[in-house]
């Protein structure tokens, strides 16, 4: 049975990178398709506001 894991292994890897930009850059250097997300703590890092947002979405 083909699972989402087996699809990943049969490749190619297509990645979304959140966090360290250098991780995305090293994937690009290897010819991997990457979308770099300009990530920042949601709701300015306010935990209560984040929970509220999660509830709304």
């Amino acid at each position: 049975m083909e699972t989402l894991v087996s699809k990943l292994l049969s490749g190619p890897v297509i990645a979304i990178n959140l966090g360290l930009k250098s991780f995305g850059a090293s994937l690009e250097q290897q010819g991997v398709e990457v979308v770099q997300v300009e990530w920042a703590p949601p709701a300015g890092g306010d935990r209560e506001m984040m929970d509220l947002l999660d509830d709304l979405l």
Binding site: I14, N17, Q36, P41, R47
Partner: peptide
Amino acid sequence: SLSVKTLEEGLSQKPNANLAVISVPGEY
């Protein structure tokens, strides 16, 4: 500087993505 700010926006750019590489601070 990139215009993609969230995972959802990233996915709309690459709907066929199969891997998220996540290295944000632990609490998030």
